[in-house]
Design a protein around this nucleic acid. Structure first.
Length: 241
DNA sequence: GCCCAGGAGCATA
DNA sequence: TATGCTCATGGG
């Protein structure tokens, strides 16, 4: 089955705006740092250090729950290590490893954060090309696209594990990262750039939400509101009746 | 104790 | 192009 045109809209009307990418904020001195979602913002007018932070979060959440990534993010912030100059200090390698430990894979993530830091400083505010990001050790397609979409406002569909799982079930075919991203981009050709940016901004966040709540590894099709447009959902209906 | 989480690099076929 | 293995912590 083809990817349904109204899929993102259906997810949006069910879950509402997600406000991604979440950024660190401090309510007041007593309360400490926490993550803030910004519904409807779509990354308009981000500060350079917020763009940098999005890249850090994208690396920290690789194959890890966002929960763990936030712990690491806050630890870095509180130790004043959430800045490129402070993340590349050679004598801070072991300290940073310990700070990012809750996000898992802490040895390689420390190295990847340093690589992103060097690169970010060298970019000097310019938007990086996708191919250049992909050439960096530790930045693959999802991390690169997350950075380009949420930090630099490039309209790219993030075909992560959730999206491929959900689309796989809806269409009945297996998608590679590039094949799904390409198909979603083709389907969005009718939109103007600003619409596509908002659509993809929400789409990724909504896929994550749906993948967490319903379309899990073991799918909760009985609770799903997409059965009418889902290949797997329709298959279920067949042998139930 | 087991499974899974907002992946990526590397070796191998 | 596509599998298989490795990297690690934390919550359900």
């Amino acid at each position: 089955m083809p990817i349904p045109d109204g899929l993102v809209a259906a997810l949006f009307s069910h879950y509402g705006p997600r406000g991604w990418w979440p950024l660190l904020k401090k309510k007041n001195e007593a309360q400490g740092w926490h993550c803030v979602y910004r519904p409807g913002d779509y990354g308009a007018s981000l500060q350079p250090l917020q763009r940098f932070e999005i890249g850090i979060g994208a690396v920290l959440t690789q194959n890890t729950s966002w929960n763990g990534a936030v712990k690491a993010l806050i630890s870095l912030k509180e130790a004043d290590r959430l800045r490129p100059e402070r993340l590349i200090e050679p004598n801070a390698v072991e300290e940073i490893r310990q700070l990012v430990r809750p996000s898992g894979f802490f040895n390689q993530k420390q190295e990847r954060l340093a690589i992103w830091s060097y690169f970010f400083m060298q970019q000097n505010g310019h938007t990086p090309h996708r191919s250049v990001l992909l050439a960096l050790k530790g930045i693959g397609p999802e991390t690169a696209d997350s950075i380009l979409l949420y930090a630099y406002g490039r309209p790219l569909f993030i075909a992560d594990a959730y999206a491929r799982r959900i689309m796989g079930r809806i269409t009945g075919v297996a998608w590679s990262y590039e094949s799904l991203a390409g198909e979603m981009h083709r389907m969005s050709q009718t939109l103007v750039e600003s619409e596509r940016l908002q659509t993809f901004n929400e789409a990724h966040a909504l896929m994550v939400e749906h993948g967490k709540q319903i379309c899990q590894v073991r799918p909760l099709c009985g609770k799903c509101f997409l059965n009418n447009i889902c290949y797997k959902g329709m298959q279920n209906g067949k042998h139930l009746s």
